[in-house]
Amino acid sequence: MLDYTNAEVVLETRDLTKHYGGVHALEGANFKIHKGEHVAIMGDNGAGKSTFVRQITAVEQRTRGDIILNGQPTQFDSPIEAREAGIETVFQNLALADDLDVPSNLFLGREKVKFKLGPFSILDNKAMREATMAGLVKTGVKIPNILNSIQNMSGGQRQCVAIARTAAFHSKLTIMDEPTAALGVQETAQVENIIRTLKEQQEPVILISHNMRQVFDLMDRIVVFRRGRICANLTIDGSIKPEDVVAYITGAKTGEEFPEAM
């Protein structure tokens, strides 16, 4: 197993906390992810996984705490800013425009233009097609024809398009929120292959998943959330077993707090 302790830290959170009124959805999360590292976030429903991701991606504004991206403390006001800074999120419910083709979806909201003219800027369709092909090659996604609208593509292909977005834009960190929850066996395999490809390319990934097999197959480390706190930080090596993870998730086993969740 690779040791990432000395690798460059891509994202770090310190004391990240979110309260919804009296509900402490996330309490003092200290988290680190290094370059090339793939980290799974696990936990029961309502454990704080999604709240954690929503703070990082600026879908919501945190109550307190720091988010440090590439050594720089950040304060994003909107998901768009987070994305521009290089945090790409693949959502469970796909953020794709069904009637548009693959390049249009990849470049949605940040189209390449040949000639600037305000809203009437001329699109550089050729460059976007080529970048799309490059992004798909990078992730190994198979699409029969990228110029068809994506509405008739399979769930797996669509999810692949969503993930390929991150590859096309050289993001610093890819967050996937249960990317295979709605997919069949074969389609899940497709998406998992992409995650492996990202691994080979040293792209850091945070994966939220309930699928123990998937996490053990693909990830380097598991961070378990329980009742709004990080309760375990487990490097996947021979010593850790799925039963242990389940024990942490359900609270049967309680790890000490991880102030330096490594």
């Binding site: 521009e84 425009a97 069904d98 909201g109 009437f120």
Partner: peptide, 23 residues
């Protein structure tokens, strides 16, 4: 051929996704 056209189709197709994409 313009960004205007692309965004018109995108918003009609999925307004939420368009907003999240920064349009």
């Amino acid at each position: 051929y313009t960004v205007y056209g692309k965004h018109t189709y995108a918003i009609g197709s999925n307004e939420q996704a368009s907003r999240m994409s920064g349009i």
